[in-house]
């Protein structure tokens, strides 16, 4: 099983988590909403698969390259 990690593209704040562990997602589905510079940006799934782990919560501040979600 291939595991892919979704990382933060830039530092910012997670303002919404749209999936739960165990959910099945397909490519380009929205996983999280990241806010940076007063702009809300959806972070989408890089591949189809199952959400294995969510390493951030609503309201968390994240740094660039932090692993946010693990999909397998």
């Amino acid at each position: 099983m291939k595991v892919s990690e979704v990382t933060a593209p830039m530092a910012g704040k997670i303002i919404d988590v749209k999936v739960e562990v165990g959910d099945t997602v397909s490519e380009d589905d929205e996983l999280l909403i990241l806010e940076a510079m007063k702009m809300e940006m959806p972070i989408v799934a890089p591949t189809s698969g199952k959400v294995k782990e969510i390493r951030c919560g609503k309201g968390d501040s994240v740094g660039a390259d932090d692993v946010l979600v693990v999909i397998e």
Binding site: P9, M10, D28, M37, M39, M41, P42
Partner: peptide, 18 residues
């Protein structure tokens, strides 16, 4: 922000803001 919005419109995995 406009660059970011246009970039993610073409490819949602693309983050141009920074």
């Amino acid at each position: 922000r406009v660059s970011q919005a246009m970039g993610s419109e073409a490819d949602p995995k693309n983050f141009l803001l920074m």
